[in-house]
Computed example of a mutant assay.
Amino acid sequence: MSTATSARPTARRTPPEARTIVDAPGTRRRRSVPRLLGGALLVVLGAVAFGVVGLRVDPGIDVLAMARPVTAGTQLSDADLRVVHIVPDRALHVVRASERSAVVGRTAAVPLAAGALLTSDQLGAVTDPPPGQSLIAVGVKTGRAPSGLTPGASVLVVIVPQGAAVDSPPQAPAVVRAVDLTDSSGITVVSLQMSAESAVRIASATGDVALILQSPGR
């Protein structure tokens, strides 16, 4: 008599490399937080580095300029000065803003217009006119000069020839020293300071005088 033997099912084992690891709820979120913090930190550090580099490459400096016009011989007060940020010209001996306290109380050697950059050679004893400079008076017709012209203003003096036009009329840079009242004929006498050579050329030229207002410090 034969006996039937039932076969027991054999459990299959999954190889380790084929197993799927399932993260517990919330694990992925916890893992992403450090990454987010790290990314934010990199953004902040990048912005700071960019700002530092930007400051290093800025060639500008803070210097002193005139807040209002003053005449030669005026003792400068703090209210006469203001700070501007410029890219300096090596040929221009500007006064740094850090020297403001040392400038207050010093004397303006020449007339200074509002907005003009302050330079070291504009301070000191008054020499009128300064060495190498001359003062001349010119009669300016109505419409040949900007209105509101004041002492200390920088101008370009141009002699407009009468009759035939010329390619290069006589001209010279100058500083306004005084502006008289306009007379009944419409002529305003303006006293100008310019180089001695330019003064001779302008005074000997024939034609109408025109004054062109220039930017402060030019």
Score class of each variant (00 low, 15 high):
Gln214Glu: 13
Thr107Tyr: 02
Leu112Glu: 03
Val103Lys: 07
Ala97Ile: 03
Val126Glu: 02
Gln214Tyr: 00
Pro130Tyr: 03
Asp89Tyr: 00
Val104Ile: 07
Ala91Pro: 12
Leu149Met: 10
Val104Tyr: 05
Val87Gly: 08
Leu149Ile: 05
Val157His: 03
Thr107Asn: 03
Leu117Arg: 04
Asp121Val: 06
Ala125Gln: 12
Ser198Arg: 08
Ile86Ser: 08
Ala125Glu: 05
Val175Thr: 09
Thr107Ala: 08
Pro131Asp: 00
Asp121Trp: 08
Asp180Pro: 01
Arg82Ala: 04
Gln193Lys: 09
Ser147Asp: 15
Ala199Gly: 12
Leu92Trp: 15
Arg106His: 15
Leu81Pro: 03
Gly148Asn: 06
Arg90Ser: 12
Ser154Thr: 14
Gly143Met: 03
Pro161Arg: 10
Ile212Leu: 15
Gly186Cys: 01
Val94Lys: 09
Leu117Asn: 08
Ser204Lys: 10
Pro146Glu: 12
Ser147Tyr: 10
Ile86Trp: 10
Val179Thr: 09
Ser154Met: 13
Ala199Pro: 05
Ala114Met: 09
Ser215Glu: 14
Ala91Val: 11
Ser215Cys: 13
Leu118Asp: 03
Glu99Cys: 08
Ala102Trp: 12
Val189Phe: 03
Thr142Trp: 06
Val200Phe: 13
Val209Trp: 02
Ala137Phe: 01
Val209Gln: 05
Ser101Asn: 14
Ala91Cys: 02
Ser185Glu: 04
Gln133Pro: 05
Leu118Arg: 05
Pro216Leu: 08
Val104Leu: 02
Ile136Phe: 02
Ser101Ala: 15
Leu156Glu: 10
Ala178Cys: 01
Thr182Ser: 08
Val103Gly: 02
Gly132Glu: 06
Ala165His: 14
Asp121Leu: 04
Leu76Asn: 01
Ala178Glu: 08
Arg82Tyr: 06
Ala125Ile: 06
Pro161Phe: 07
Ser215Trp: 14
Arg201Pro: 14
Gly105His: 08
Ser184Asn: 11
Gln214Lys: 10
Val155Glu: 07
Leu118Ser: 02
Ser185Ala: 13
Gly105Leu: 10
Ala203Pro: 12
Asp78Val: 03
Ala172Phe: 07
Asp89Gln: 14
Val190Tyr: 00
Pro129Gln: 00
Pro161Glu: 05
Ile159Phe: 09
Ser195Thr: 07
Leu76Cys: 05
Ala108Gly: 09
Ala114Trp: 03
Gly115Asn: 00
Thr74Pro: 05
Gly139His: 08
Val83Ile: 11
Arg177Lys: 00
Val126Tyr: 02
Val209Asn: 08
Leu135Met: 11
Gln193Ser: 14
Ser120Cys: 00
Gly139Lys: 06
Ala205Asp: 13
Val83Lys: 12
Leu149Arg: 00
Thr127Ala: 15
Ala91Asp: 14
Ala145Val: 08
Gln75Ile: 13
Val104Ser: 01
Arg201Trp: 09
Val166Tyr: 07
Gly73Lys: 00
Pro216Asp: 10
Arg144Val: 11
Arg106Pro: 06
Leu81His: 02
Thr119Cys: 10
Asp78Ser: 07
Ala79Gly: 04
Val166Phe: 09
Val190Gly: 01
Lys141Arg: 15
Ile202Gly: 10
Arg106Gln: 14
Ser215Arg: 14
Ile136Val: 08
Thr206Pro: 08
Gly148Asp: 00
Val138Trp: 00
Val155Ala: 04
Val126His: 03
Leu149His: 05
Ser191Cys: 06
Gly186Tyr: 04
Gln214Arg: 09
Ser168Arg: 15
Ala97Trp: 06
Pro88Val: 01
Val189Pro: 04
Leu156Val: 12
Ile187Arg: 09
Ala113Phe: 04
